[in-house]
Write a protein that binds this DNA or RNA. Structure first.
Lengths: 207, 207
DNA sequence: CACCCACTACCAAGCGGTTGTCTGGTTGGG
DNA sequence: CCCAACCAGACAACCGCTTGGTAGTGGGTG
């Protein structure tokens, strides 16, 4: 067996989470998180090394372990940051928009804009995590639940034909959106246009 | 800079491709390809090491370089194998089926069956490659083109409402299908059922 | 048919480099 | 002056890949 490409070196006790006492103004934890999210979304989780991230903010790799007890925790924290940014973008895009379909469309446009925008932290949410070790994977899924729950709410607010499975509808739409990094080219259609098309396809059908 | 987690050690001339002369019956190249495809689809490209693959077939890591000049070439070859298997499955599923939508549905069912089937080599096609180095990524995209072209043909054969972007329709459907490994659970709906739902959503719309 | 040798298909060992992580020391702001 | 927030450097493990050697097998020859 031993199909364990992931290296687990020291399963011993995690050093108790930092960030308990007072902080100083030169704390670069947030800077670190942003850099991590950027690199993760550009190169993936496994392909981004601790040194890459540290180097991005001008710090040594070992120093990051003052802020995060392990790489997995950095991943989780950066991912959480990305989800929060997506949620904020969603709220902003939804502000003042009325009508079920209009709201769903606005949310999808915001989603793709942030996913394919490039410079953003939110791109980390689109990083494929289907092959991560089960434990880490579970933590990321849990974080996404809030966001997907919001999407589910938007879909629940729609009037649909009878017999439509709203869960599968959500997963289908999310798949369409999250697969775009695999084929998107910056010189083609805009993310917003793509998102609107996807929603329209789903809404009206093609036949 | 130096955001180059991928290691490029020897840019020198590739050893001219093997497999020129006579072969012997104890050639385990195919066995190697199958094992690679299995591990890639389970753990991803970067997370699967040469030693993992070699170990799977009971061979030493270095020995694989007799068959493939580099890991990238193994990836390409295994991916090609997966695509071929998908094509065969598609042909088989399409055999005797008439009607545009029926054919598209049959193809999608075959697609998901192979993707989520688990034990199959075809799963390698669903592995996210959006973060692979550009050159390798391009080679994989090229291989998929034949398969996606087939899907495009199926879609071209449909009678659709006016103004439907068939390319975006294909990409949307493919996204829905290929994103399923991120949420699929073996104890829920069957892959075939999911595929049929997705096609139905797209066909009839939800509103 | 037996022999033989070339060559396929590996093994064994190790290369330089990178990985995540740890330990112990240093520093400057509150 | 204390401690948050780093640096410097090392650790073993593992990475993709190379080199040099060798077993055994198949085709060719007598």
């Amino acid at each position: 067996m031993s199909i364990a490409p992931r290296r687990i070196r020291n399963p011993k006790k995690r050093p108790t989470q930092r960030r308990r006492g007072n902080t100083r103004s030169d704390n670069r934890r947030d800077e670190l998180l942003a850099a991590a999210a950027r690199l993760f979304s550009k190169n993936g989780f496994e392909a981004t090394s601790m040194r890459d991230i540290a180097n991005e903010v001008g710090m040594l790799a070992g120093s990051m372990y003052y802020h995060f007890p392990a790489k997995d925790d950095l991943i989780v924290a950066a991912h959480a940051e990305g989800v929060q940014e997506l949620l904020r973008a969603m709220d902003k895009a939804l502000d003042g928009v009325v009508g079920g379909w209009e709201r769903l469309e606005a949310a999808c446009v915001a989603h793709l804009d942030n996913l394919l925008g490039g410079s953003d932290i939110a791109g980390v949410v689109a990083v494929d995590f289907s092959q991560l070790p089960e434990e880490l994977r579970a933590r990321l899924i849990e974080q996404r639940d809030e966001y997907e729950g919001r999407l589910a709410q938007l879909i629940d607010g729609l009037e649909l034909r009878e017999g439509v499975d709203r869960r599968l509808m959500r997963l289908s739409l999310l798949g369409s959106l999250n697969w775009t990094p695999n084929w998107f080219r910056a010189d083609g259609q805009t993310p917003a246009s793509i998102a609107r098309h996807f929603v329209a396809l789903l809404r009206e059908g093609v036949a």
